[in-house]
Simulated assay, not measured.
Amino acid sequence: MNIRECALPGIGVKYQFHTKGGNQLVIIKHEDGRRELFSVNPQDDEDLTLIAELEDDECVTLSGLIGGWS
């Protein structure tokens, strides 16, 4: 999987990747620690839909669920 990383000055860091199923996801890690998870419209790369805004403990729980740890 190819993950693109881009600094967002004054905001944080943007991570973007394509899934094998053809979806495109964006995660923005803000300087204050918040994370936002977006889906990208396949017809328009500039059209993002916010899926969730996550705090540290929620990120840990989500990663565990996705990774099959629980």
Score class of each variant (00 low, 15 high):
D32Q: 13
E53Q: 12
A52E: 10
G33Q: 09
P9V: 14
L54P: 04
N2T: 06
L54F: 08
E31G: 13
N23C: 08
D56S: 04
I66R: 01
L8S: 11
N41A: 15
A52I: 03
A7N: 09
G12L: 04
D32W: 09
G67L: 00
G12A: 02
L37D: 07
C59L: 11
N41T: 15
I11D: 09
D45A: 10
D47C: 14
L54G: 04
L25N: 02
I28G: 13
G68V: 01
G67T: 00
G21D: 09
V26N: 05
E31F: 08
N41R: 11
R35E: 14
Q24D: 05
D44H: 11
T61D: 15
K20N: 04
E36C: 07
Q16I: 05
F17Y: 13
D32I: 13
T61W: 08
E53G: 11
C6M: 12
K20R: 12
V40S: 04
Q43G: 09
A7H: 15
K29G: 12
V60L: 04
V40W: 07
V60I: 06
L37E: 03
V26R: 06
I66E: 01
V40Q: 01
D47L: 02
D57N: 08
D32P: 11
S70L: 02
T49L: 07
S39V: 14
P9M: 06
V13P: 09
G33K: 13
I28H: 06
C6S: 11
V26D: 11
V40R: 04
L25A: 03
G10H: 03
E31A: 10
